[in-house]
Design a protein around this nucleic acid. Sequence first.
RNA 1: AGGGAGUUAGCUCAGUUGGUAGAGCGCCACCCUUACAAGGUGGACGUCGCAGGUUCGAAUCCUGUACUCCCUACCA
Length: 892
Amino acid sequence: MSEKLSDRYNPADVEGRTYAWWEKEGYFKAQDQSTKPPFSIILPPPNVTGFLHMGHALDHTVQDMLIRWKRMNGFNTMWLPGTDHAGIATQSVVEKDLKKSGVTRHELGREKFVEKIWDWKHQYGDRIYSQMRRLGDSCDWDRAVFTLDESASKAVRKVFVSLHQKGMIYRGKRLVNWSGPLETAISDLEVEHQTVKGSLYHISYPLEDGSESLVVATTRPETMLGDTALCVHPEDPRYKALIGKNVVIPLINRKIKIIADTYVDKDFGSGVVKITPAHDFNDYKIGVTHNLEFINLLTKKAEMNENAGPYKGLKVQEARKRVLEDLKNGNFLIKEEPHIHSVGHCSRSGAVVEPFLSEQWFVKMDQLATPAKRVVESGTIRFEPESWTKVYLHWLNNIEDWCISRQLWWGHRIPVWYCGDCEHQTVSETDITACEKCGSTKLRQDEDVLDTWFSSALWPFSTMGWPNESETLKTFYPTSYLVTGHDIIFFWVARMIMMGLEFQRDVPFRTVYVHGLIRDSQGRKMSKSLGNSIDPVDMIEKYGTDALRFSFAAHLFSGKDFKFNEQRIEGYRNFMNKIWNAARFALSNLSDFNTPAEGTAALPNKAHVSVFDQWIITKLEQVTKEVETAMEAERFSDAATALYQFIWNQFCDWYIEFTKPIMNGSNHEEKAATQMVIAQVLNRMMRLLHPFAPFISEEIYQKLPIRGAACIVDQYPNLRNDKDFLSLGSEQAALEIDVVKEVITAIRNIRGENRISPAVKINVRLGVNNDHVQKLLGNNRTALMTMGRIENLEVGADGDLMKCAVAPVVIGDASVNVIIPLEGLVDFDEEIKRITKTIEKLQKDISMLTAKLSNEKFIANADEDVVAADRVLLSQSKVQIDSLRDALVRLQ
RNA sequence: AGGGAGUUAGCUCAGUUGGUAGAGCGCCACCCUUACAAGGUGGACGUCGCAGGUUCGAAUCCUGUACUCCCUACCA
């Protein structure tokens, strides 16, 4: 107890040491079998070679808060960490690094390249975990999983094979989004649409017989090389007669037919659309319905291929330029007008996405989507905030099959082998050496890997040992919460629900807590490319983990995005310091505290408990209740704010000040009782605080005279488990202290407004209206004198009021005139100003209340309580304004 | 184009069944009062985007409207 604490809270001294200790003690560990109720969260696996960013910090804060809160509430908590191989992201980073040494991955070869990525993973794979430790994440590290671990890979193969057997996975030549630089297909979700200023080119297509020409508007003229039809609306009078005739594609003189489809909008452009089935999604659909030829113009690198004739080898942009020039020279280009449209870009490489016809693997979505919709509609899975339900369902209602193959080397390789002899496809959970049909050993495994989100979709059960029937799975599946930002509801949440239902016959989680995204000061998304991202570790180093976490907790209102505000973190850093100093001071008052023996009730002697003690216990009861209600309703910011206010505005601002005279006084019994209350309130404060500010709460807790082994595993206070202590509070005491606080505030107000220096002690008279109030104030003489900085205090009748400042305080039936003689202290102008200001305000209130209360309809319709409260307010205001008017007259 | 969200004090944001607008930061004044200047005390500041409507009473409910943002989809 004699240990000296520094006068500033220094997070760096505390955090690393405390975290290591928790870990060593095994406090984060979950039990596969336990009598405690289970509570589990699976961490959304970050990119294994990535950095922690603000989004993670927020996301993890929510999860750790829940986990710590539930742990302290007696749950068998499991927070299961893991990392993701992040196919495209990781491969492109390593590829870029490789390029520095002038080697491409193709030159290196698949095997060597993948080895290189593993090296990379081993080098950086722990970085994210050590950053998570700095955040204070209390996850069960023994259970950490990587998506390419053997166990997770087993699950992936099992699911693939099973879905394939059920006919839900198929291979097909389809139009997919293609990223040229990455040379791979990407999913719809990996395409970002950006508004781009382009041009609409009007190109003339002559009829075969040369009689006339049709004008077609397009934003991508180079794709005309792959046109296999022109299309008009069947009811368009301008073109009706031409349907079925042929036109000639300019420049390459290939004949194509004019077809009709209601897809065409007669009113847009010329009403004629060129159809390039191999390079446009809408055209593709028309190509399929009308049985058109599909001409692919591109190579995998998104360069023009041999089908582009003279334009072969050119990049798309160059080909466009050349085609336009040639069209102009041949008088085929009718006009060019500016056109704003949106263009898909690859979210990884930033390149324009090209629709590209290729052989890919797909998962059928209809069968998976239906149950996934149902569980949300029925409320088995709840979104918080609820508004995401609609977004989720809307997406599932419009879902397309999921392209799961990627032309990458880093990831789960597709478990399909092609026989070189009989061409049979063997789909297998284990690697095979012979064709299952003909036994040939001339086998070639599919070159592609699976979309990263395929393995992520299995995460809630693949991390728990599945396909084995593990105890973990039995205990912790379904998990309790899934915490995430709204950016990956489709990518991830929806797919986990589908796979969970398909393979576990149960939802993967009960509640999806969707938090907002953190944006920069201008409201933009934080990203590396914009250079506006902020490193949470920098913030931790500057302000401490608890300050960062508390700023998130206090900001978690309704799932809305919010702008990053460093000053807010600074504010909570100050709060942590305030807590530190309050605890430091309180502990210094406990140096002679008689620590009760373990197992005893450790309650203060009721006979000696002061009114201040009773009051703070009542306040503690209130905050305990508020926090419990807020946490249960997932209103984390309400809980954090309630604690903030209790600690700063009640405990620090008033309680500590009230107890100072007792601590320095000579009443030993009273002092002992207050010491006990201080020790117990501190203990509860730290426990309440723990999920929000784990480090400082544990650090202070460990220095308390009354405590358990560790704050992290102590009980979370609530009204039921803390009944004995809380019953020492008193509403009566609370009312009494309210009067005392108001009187002190009134004194301070007069001092402040009249600029009476704190160094000057003043004389104060308190005019009271009844004996009860007189007694009450007399009992609290010391507090009033100390906190009001009073030389002489009289309590009684108003007495001589000449040249006095007056502040009427009215609470309930208590009415107190705070009277301060000003003669010789200050001139009266300031006080006249102050009183005049107050009178004006009161006048406004009175006329408003009078009008309201004389309105018959208000009396008739409003709640009785409301009317009564207004009546009280009116009469109180009248009492106050009368005293002030008298005072004003005397001063003038 | 469809869907969703937002608009409250200089800034970042609260405001849960409609009942005289709140916090933190910033600002002004006075204070190093023996826990804390990362502090204390006092103070100033908002016709709650705009226009209607319902109501005794609207930031809150309804209608319309402006602006901002996000998502989904895309007209070549």
